[in-house]
Design a protein around this nucleic acid. Structure first.
Length: 435
DNA sequence: CGAGTTTGACCGGCGC
DNA sequence: GCGCCGGTCAAACTCG
């Protein structure tokens, strides 16, 4: 009798456990459904934001295509510098990031302008372009070149203010530089490249190789590949230019990463420098941001690589350092004079951590989304280079092994990562052992 | 034989 | 004006 009662109690307990487990499973399933709905909503939001960006860019185009009258040589020198890099968001629409306006406003509060350069205003716009605009790139380059000439003429023609001349110096095409651990000769980014030159650059015994995109004979995109002098396992790949042709799916990942990296520029806060004018002390990294400084954001501190923006050889360059996500990146060899930096002896830092965590300083949520994608992209690249990057939720090394979403073989990597997240949750449910 | 690589020459920007 | 240096060109070469 007692034995019977005992077994009945056990049955009852087991049933209670079963019901409790069932409740938990149902809860997780509901959570899964909720996440799926949320992702779908985010996708819709992203699409609608893309449309808004496009509309905005059309309006900007209309504004910029109106003829301008210059009231002074200085104003002319400050005219737009059109910079294109990479592709943005959508393959089919050929949308791209374009930094179109880098204005340096010199606030000459006093007569001795040399020492009182009070304000440096950096204005950056983001717009998308139609396919037709891609084909206009040579014109952009010509304009750029002519701007350079104008600038040089202006600098010789009378502005005695050396500092002002430096401020007016136009920038070359922007670049995205990716530092990653890579044992192979090249990082597979999905594109087809043809080597057209090799040089031993000063200060680095490792030769720098020059490649151009061969997918289209007219594609202006170039890349430079060089090993780091301090650590030969670190490969620095620098991309420049805009693809004027459809990219293979495997190449969209890197292209999106590079363009998105620059989009951070376009939606970040404007910066001002404290004026401690010095003509001899030149800063080498005026714009700098670091996603890993926000300790409240576990994702960013544990995963996102460090990125910095600098000007190398007058090229505004976004550097994604994927070699050590949580560490101070290996400082770059002091670059030549930054066009931004002549008026200040110290770097002015942009703290994007708040931007990242709250997304409030960014006018477009989609930029934040693109940034996250880009950095995820970058992380994946670092995985290819034997780095293992983890978030609090997903081990990307596992995710990539499971999904096969590696650079060079997966256009839907982002979907796969999200799907992996959902799948792993479902696996947790499936493997849940109530007893 | 075509595509890609190598490598010395050349060019232009820039600092002095 | 000169020299340095990064970037590109193009002929020669290699490879499949």
């Amino acid at each position: 009798m007692i034995k019977f009662l005992h077994s009945e109690v056990e049955k009852f307990q087991a049933q209670a456990k079963m019901e409790s487990s069932q409740v938990k499973i149902d809860a997780v399933r509901r959570e899964n459904e909720r996440l799926k709905i949320k992702i779908s909503q985010m996708t819709k939001d992203c699409d609608s934001l893309k449309m808004q960006i496009h509309d905005h860019s059309v309006r900007l185009d209309q504004i910029h295509h109106q003829p301008r009258k210059f009231t002074s040589p200085g104003e002319q020198a400050n005219d737009l510098v059109a910079l294109n890099l990479g592709r943005f968001f959508d393959d089919s629409k050929f949308a791209e990031l374009e930094i179109i306006n880098i204005n340096h406003e010199i606030n000459e509060s006093g007569k001795d302008g040399l020492s009182k350069l009070g304000k440096l205003e950096l204005s950056l716009d983001c717009k998308s372009q139609s396919r037709d605009s891609f084909l206009d790139e040579p014109n952009v380059e010509e304009n750029n070149a002519s701007d350079k000439c104008k600038s040089r003429k202006a600098s010789r023609s009378g502005l005695e203010d050396h500092e002002i001349n430096l401020e007016m110096k136009p920038l070359k095409k922007p670049r995205v530089s990716i530092r990653a651990m890579c044992d192979t000769q090249n990082m597979n980014d999905g594109c087809q490249w043809r080597k057209y030159g090799q040089k031993i650059a000063k200060g680095n015994p490792c030769p720098r190789a020059y490649y151009r995109c061969t997918i289209s004979p007219t594609c202006p995109v170039r890349k430079q590949v060089q090993r780091c002098r301090e650590n030969m396992s670190i490969l620095t790949t620098t991309y420049e230019g805009t693809h004027n042709h459809p990219l293979p799916p495997s190449a969209t990942a890197m292209a999106t990463a590079t363009s998105s990296a620059l989009s951070m520029l376009t939606c970040g806060p404007t910066t001002t420098t404290s004026s401690t004018a010095s003509t001899t002390n030149k800063s080498n990294n005026l714009l700098r941001f670091d996603f890993s400084t926000n300790k409240s954001d576990k994702l960013s501190t544990s995963f996102f690589p460090r990125a910095s923006i600098t000007t190398l050889q007058s090229h505004p360059t976004v550097i994604l350092d994927l070699t050590a996500p949580n560490q101070i990146p290996t400082p770059y060899k002091k670059p030549p004079l930054s066009t931004f930096s002549s008026s200040s002896s110290s770097s002015s830092c942009l703290d994007f951590s708040s931007f990242y965590s709250k997304g409030q300083n960014c006018s477009h949520k989609s930029n934040q989304f693109a940034l996250q994608s880009a950095l995820l992209e970058a992380a994946i690249t670092s995985v290819v280079g034997n780095g293992v990057v983890t978030t609090n939720h997903i081990s990307f090394s596992d995710a990539l092994v499971d999904s096969g979403a590696m650079i060079g073989c997966g256009a839907g990597y982002w979907d796969k990562i999200i799907q992996y997240s959902l799948d792993s949750q479902q696996k947790n449910v499936a493997s849940f052992q109530p007893f």
